[in-house]
Simulated scan of single mutants.
Amino acid sequence: MLDRTSQAAGTILPSRSTEWPTVILALVIHGGFLALTWWWQSLLLIMAVIAGGWLIAWQGSLQHEVIHGHPTGNQRINDAIGSIPLSLWLPYPIYRESHLEHHRDEYLTDPIEDPESSYFTKATWDQLGATGRLLARWNTTLFGRLTIGPAVMLLSFLGQEGQLVRANEPGRRRIWVVHGIGVAAVLFWATVVCGMPLWLYLGFVYTSAAMTRLRSYAEHRYAESHEERTAIVENSHLFGLLFLYNNLHVLHHRRPGISWYRLPAVYRKNRETLVRSNGGLVYNGYWDIARRFFLKPHDDPTHPHHS
């Protein structure tokens, strides 16, 4: 029987030993980033952009792992591993706080209660205007999510954070000052030490955001039962590694404390139970998602409980 554990909110068991596969992964990601930025001129431009996007998106998956209490039993060490701002735009403490809120499964997809919801309330939808609604509808297709989706996500997030900083939300200014120091260090390394043009590094960032938007595109869909709001994407070996098997998303929500390298085996053992519990919301790889939704909306952008 697959049950939930106290790790649903990232709780760390005091007896947890160091998870060396995740430590090695962190070394590979950050070592790969240093190597790529140092030798970027040796690569074709398109290869550099894809590799840079992959590594930054991979680090985002690592940050997600860290948020849930990996790879050590000391969260300060874990947070240090996850705090390097390669993506530039997302402060790790804000990501950690909002993602743990997202794990309140009874509120999944709710645009007010779930900070990772892609749905709109009726009031917000009306405020978008004709152009905004057109872009929002485009963003509900996979093509739109991969092209304008990163820009929509970044501008929306930075706009909201700007309001909180101006309102002097407790602790927000400190978070952004510390984050800004980290961003300055990353950009100094990439642009001054390694001689990389800023536009190229920003290309890495946008590509990584598009890869992340692919992962999150069909992760959740509104259903009356919150158990049926979380999807599974099977048979995705390449992207599964990039996303650290977070594509087996219903298992992650049921057991968020499971380490990434254990997820596939646990999923295979419990597949029947998991598919039954989420109402059969299963995709056969990301090509299946592209086939269904590349130019078609995944869902209505307005949430049915806020219409």
Rank of each mutant, 00 (worst) to 15 (best):
L44K: 14
D3W: 13
R172N: 03
E65W: 00
N246A: 06
V152H: 09
R276I: 04
A218V: 01
L158V: 08
R137F: 12
L88G: 06
A51L: 12
A185E: 04
G180I: 05
I148M: 03
V205W: 13
L45N: 12
R215Y: 15
G162E: 02
M153G: 04
W40S: 00
V23I: 15
T121H: 12
S208T: 05
S42V: 13
Y283I: 08
A231V: 04
H305F: 07
R255V: 07
P197K: 06
T72K: 02
E161G: 04
S208H: 07
F157K: 01
Y222R: 02
V49K: 10
S87G: 14
R133V: 12
H220C: 12
Y261D: 11
Q127N: 14
T212C: 08
D300A: 09
F143L: 15
A223M: 12
G144R: 00
Y107T: 13
L155T: 10
E106G: 02
V266S: 10
A80N: 03
I46Y: 14
W58Q: 09
F33L: 13
Y283G: 01
G31L: 13
I94K: 11
H298R: 08
L135M: 14
R174Q: 02
L242S: 00
D126H: 10
V183G: 03
L100H: 13
L128K: 12
P93G: 04
E161W: 10
S98I: 04
H102A: 08
L128W: 09
H102I: 08
P150N: 01
Y283W: 05
Q63E: 09
F188E: 07
A184K: 07
Q75Y: 03
T273I: 06
R255Q: 15
Y206N: 08
G257S: 06
V178P: 00
M211Q: 02
R262T: 11
M1E: 08
K269F: 11
E219Q: 14
G195H: 10
I181T: 12
E224I: 12
R76C: 04
I289W: 02
L158C: 10
I232V: 12
E272T: 15
C194I: 02
I84S: 03
W189K: 03
W89D: 00
V23K: 04
V250I: 09
P150F: 00
L241V: 10
P301D: 04
R276N: 08
L244I: 03
W20T: 13
V192N: 02
V152D: 08
D300Y: 05
Y286H: 14
P115T: 15
A80D: 04
R133L: 09
A231P: 01
W138L: 15
E219F: 03
I81R: 07
V192W: 06
R229Q: 08
H102F: 10
I258R: 01
R271K: 15
G132H: 09
I67Q: 07
G285A: 08
L274P: 08
T230E: 03
Q163V: 13
L128A: 14
W39H: 15
M1G: 05
T302Q: 09
H226C: 03
H306C: 07
V165G: 07
T18C: 15
A210C: 07
S277M: 13
H70G: 09
E219W: 01
E116G: 14
